[in-house]
Structures are given as C-alpha cells and as structure tokens.
C-alpha cells in the first residue's frame, strides 16, 4: 500500500503526536490502501529542518509551528505575534477567516497545504518574580519563543538570550537565564517548575499563541486518488476537533502542575494585556510590516477577526 511519512519534533505523550496518531489511525481504518508512518521526537528531521523537505516533496507531512518557516515566508511570522490571538475560541475563528485563506495561498506557493489547523498557548515564568506586565522583564536575561516576542521583550528592556526550549532548564539552573516564555506543554515537559519562583499561565487573556498546523505537500496530496483524499480530510477534521479541546485543557493543566510544585501562579489582567499589545504595536508589529510584502494588509486582516 502507499505510504506517507509524517515527521514531527514531539514526544509520544505530546498532544501533537496524538493528533498525528488520530489521522494515521483514521486513515488506516478507512481502508483506502494508504499508510501514514509517524517519525516523532525529531527522529527523521530536526524541528526547524522540516519545512524545506516538505515544500520540496521529500517529506509528505509534518506538524510544526509555522513561524519556524518565517525566514522563508515572512508572512508566517504573523502566526506567532504577541496579542494577536486572545483565546482558543478566537483562534478557532481565525482558522476560518480570510486571513487564514491568504496564508494558505502563500503556502500554496511553496507547494504546501494545511490538513489540521491548531493553536497552542503559552505563558511566562521567572526565577526571581512574576511576569505579568512589561515593567516586570526590564533587565532580566530572558528567553523568548519566537522572533516577534524577542522584539517586544527587548522593547520592554529585557536582555534576550536565544536558546531552544530544551535548554531553558539548565540555563535557569546555572543562572544564565532569569525568565522564559514558551508553550504550556514545554513548561511542563521540561520541568521548568523546578527552577522558577512564579508562573504566568495562559488564562482568559493570554499573549502567546502559536499556530501549529499539520501540513502536507500539496502535490503529494493531489496525486492521491479521490477516496484517499477524502479519508485524509475526514481524519483531519476529527483530529482538528480533538486538537482544539486538548489545547484548551493544557493551559489549566500546566498551571496545576506548577501550583502543586509550590510555584506561585500569577494572572495577567486585561490592563497588562493592553500594555503588552501597545508595546508590541511599536516593536514587533512595526517590524513585521516593515519586513513583509503586503504586511500591513495581512495584519489588518488578522486584526479584523472578532
């Protein structure tokens, strides 16, 4: 039977692996002579090296933060922009918007298409104190997830240290790092609660949302027969519903883990959020518009989603 290869960077227990597994299982159950083989934990490609082979047809499918490919398509940087997404339901509405259609047109230029939409949220953690508003990060050595967040935090007076999320634990332990921003699930899986004093999880308002879809090479998809295509799309729809529900649960679950570990839990107020967003407009949004062809138009489309 025909075989598709799906690569991702996460462990077996991660929600994104479960999403991949649902698609693989559903397609297998549909009995359309199609197999999806999952290569997790970066066992085939490193996290940031998946988009290129995907776009060249050397890899069939992947689940990745789209902003990883922001160096190739600057428009993708909009999928990790501070304060652009307010909460998970808002994220779901974004997925069906004109903004997402415009993004998908850009993906099509790279021969890439979306199978499963999904956003995951994240928060902040500090070894010295709580981080809720811009003043809290001034002078701290901070690791941010994503270029736009680095620009915004630098604007707030933080010193930026770049590293992967797997290095946060050691960097905090040795004192190289005072604060970090990453996804709720990374905070838990890298046991950051052992190193920090205070955690600000994603709540009713959250700053950090990252678009992490399941992508497929478009030509490969189009080369499948109709039944196979239908089976894939059905499976993807089921996985997408699951993904949204799990994404909502993860933020609260991460807060529980940190609370149980004796870490102080802080909340970001609407006023804090507005202060961050005002700062982001001056820093990351402005830089995005400057660097991206049609940047302002895309930004307006995203901001127009209620």
């Amino acid at each position: 039977s025909e075989e598709l290869r799906l690569s991702h960077q996460w462990s077996n227990q991660d929600v994104r692996n479960k999403v991949a597994q649902i698609v693989a299982d559903e397609v297998a159950a549909a009995d359309v002579d199609l197999d999806i083989k999952i290569f997790g934990s970066q066992s085939l490609f490193k996290a940031r090296e998946q988009y290129t082979p995907l776009s060249r047809g050397q890899l069939d499918m992947t689940i990745l933060p789209l902003s990883y490919a922001g160096g190739q398509q600057p428009a993708y940087n909009l999928t990790l922009m501070p304060g652009l997404v307010k909460n998970h339901d808002h994220a779901a509405r974004l997925n069906n918007s004109d903004f997402m259609k415009a993004l998908q047109e850009i993906m099509a230029q790279d021969d890439v298409m979306v199978l499963v939409h999904g956003y995951l949220a994240g928060g902040f953690a500090g070894t010295k104190g709580c981080i809720t508003k811009p003043e809290d990060v001034a002078g701290l050595q901070t690791r941010a997830a994503g270029k736009a967040f680095e620009q915004m935090l630098a604007g707030a007076g933080a010193s930026i240290a770049s590293m992967s999320s797997s290095e946060i634990y050691n960097a905090m332990q040795t004192g190289v790092l005072d604060a970090a921003n990453t996804s709720s699930s990374s905070f838990v899986s890298y046991r950051i609660y052992e190193q920090v004093k205070c955690y600000t999880p994603a709540g009713d308002v959250a700053l950090w949302f990252m678009y992490q879809p399941m992508l497929m090479n478009k030509s490969t998809f189009e080369a499948l027969n109709e039944e196979q295509q239908a089976a894939l799309l059905d499976a993807a729809a089921k996985a997408q519903a699951f993904y949204l529900e799990e994404a909502k649960k993860e933020d609260a679950a991460s807060a529980d883990v940190f609370r149980e570990a004796g870490v102080e839990i802080a909340t970001m107020s609407q006023a804090d959020f507005d202060a961050w967003r005002a700062l982001a407009q001056k820093t990351s949004y402005a830089k995005f518009v400057e660097d991206t062809p049609d940047g302002q138009k895309l930004l307006d489309m995203a901001l127009a989603v209620e």
Partner: peptide, 8 residues
Amino acid sequence: AMYGGIAT
C-alpha cells in the same frame, strides 16, 4: 564558569 552560572 560552567557550574557557577556564567556560561553554558
């Protein structure tokens, strides 16, 4: 440097 919090 390595264990005293200065550098990786």
